[in-house]
Structures are given as structure tokens and as C-alpha cells.
């Protein structure tokens, strides 16, 4: 899927992750801020890379703010953000 414009999904509540996705000229860039970065940062980034690959996204800039989301939550939020960002018209 192609990222056509910016989109977001998720909240800043505990156990959730807020994902903002933007078009990127080249490749995947993930900038993560997480309350559990020290322990799970790499694992969260790996989950996001896997999810993007499964969705066929090869270029995107992602800003994620995590408050201890589980893997399934990370996948769900990122998938929603990607679907919103690849829709034809920008929701105004």
C-alpha cells in the first residue's frame, strides 16, 4: 500500500500506542518514544517493520508514542493508520 498523506491512529492512554504515519521519499523511518523503550524498544520496532511489510508498505515515516501497548495493539493501530493514509481523499 502507498502512503498518500499523513494519518494517525491510537491514543496516549496507558497500554496503547499512538501512531502517526507520513509519506517518506525513501524507505521506512520509525521514530519511537516509549515508556518501555529500554526493555521493549527493539521488539516494538520489529513488530512495526513486520506489520508494514505484511501490508506492502515500503516507504513511510512513522512517529510512534507508546505507553506499553501489546503486540496485537501495535499491529492494529499501525494497520489502521496505514489504511487511513492510503485512502484516496484526505478526510477533512
Amino acid at each position: 500500500m502507498e502512503i498518500k498523506h499523513g494519518a494517525m491512529a491510537g491514543t496516549l492512554e496507558s497500554s496503547d500506542i499512538m501512531v502517526t504515519i507520513l509519506p517518506n521519499p525513501d524507505g521506512i523511518q520509525i521514530d519511537l518514544t516509549s515508556s518501555v523503550e529500554q526493555y521493549y524498544g527493539d521488539s516494538i520496532r520489529a513488530t512495526m517493520h513486520r506489520t508494514l511489510e505484511a501490508l506492502g508498505v515500503s516507504s513511510a515515516r512513522i512517529e510512534a508514542v507508546d505507553h506499553g501497548a501489546l503486540d496485537c495493539t501495535i499491529q492494529a493501530r499501525l494497520t489502521t493508520a496505514v489504511r487511513r493514509a492510503s485512502r484516496e481523499e484526505v478526510a477533512k
Partner: peptide, 21 residues
């Protein structure tokens, strides 16, 4: 009570709808 995070989340959503990321 997490009110600030709810408020900030709401404002971020408003900004995203305007195209401000």
C-alpha cells in the same frame, strides 16, 4: 487522572484533520 493526555490526543486529532502533523 490522565486528563492532559486525553486533551492533547484530542488536539492532535484536530490538527491532523487540518493536515498539521
Amino acid at each position: 487522572e490522565g486528563l492532559l493526555s486525553s486533551l492533547v490526543r484530542h488536539l492532535i486529532e484536530v490538527q491532523c484533520r487540518r493536515g498539521n502533523f
